[in-house]
């Protein structure tokens, strides 16, 4: 099954990993992946590290956030799943002019100072503030680690 040509933006502090390549792209027939991270795009070691992630029918590109914001201003040629690390990166994309309508929150894991929202979503006060800013600016935030998972409204979850 091939997904329609559109951008899907996922927030996940593991970035590209099995759940992304196998759980999303393979299941939904998404051929293009973008790992958007300003540190990783500049690291040959990290680009090589993530190059082993995509399956045979998938292509992975590396971009900085500025490049992704620009790319998202036009529809992709094929369905493309872009992955960013967290809420501050999403806010940065918005500031750079990316037309963010919906962001899938796929995984923000536990860390010092974070509170648990769901089993795959833990937020620090700073992350929560960024998520609230995104929602206040009209971005629809949906908690959904996998295609078959229930779509949870972060607006409701965060209270």
């Amino acid at each position: 099954m091939a997904s329609k040509a559109e951008w899907i933006l996922r927030m996940d502090d593991r970035l590209v990993h099995g759940q992304v390549c196998v759980g999303w792209c393979e299941v939904l027939g998404i051929p293009h992946l973008v790992l958007a991270d300003d540190a990783i795009v500049g690291s040959a070691f990290e680009r090589d590290l993530y190059a082993c992630c995509p399956g045979q029918d998938q292509q992975l590109a590396f971009m900085g956030l500025e490049e992704l914001a620009l790319a998202m201003s036009t529809p992709p040629a094929q369905a493309t799943l872009a992955v960013i690390a967290g809420p501050s990166e999403a806010l940065r994309l918005l500031e750079l002019g990316a037309p963010l309508v919906e962001v899938l929150v796929g995984g923000l894991h536990d860390q010092p100072g974070a509170r648990q929202v769901t089993d795959y979503l833990f937020v620090t006060p700073a992350q929560e503030e960024s998520l609230r800013q995104l929602m206040a600016r009209g971005v629809h935030l949906v908690g959904q680690p996998l295609p078959a998972s229930p779509r949870l409204e972060l607006q409701r979850l965060l209270g």
Partner: peptide
């Protein structure tokens, strides 16, 4: 376990 999954990636990052 799976190549390209988070345990594999973390392992390589830690070794580096």
């Amino acid at each position: 376990d799976a190549p390209g999954a988070s345990p594999h990636l973390a392992c390589r990052l830690a070794l580096a």
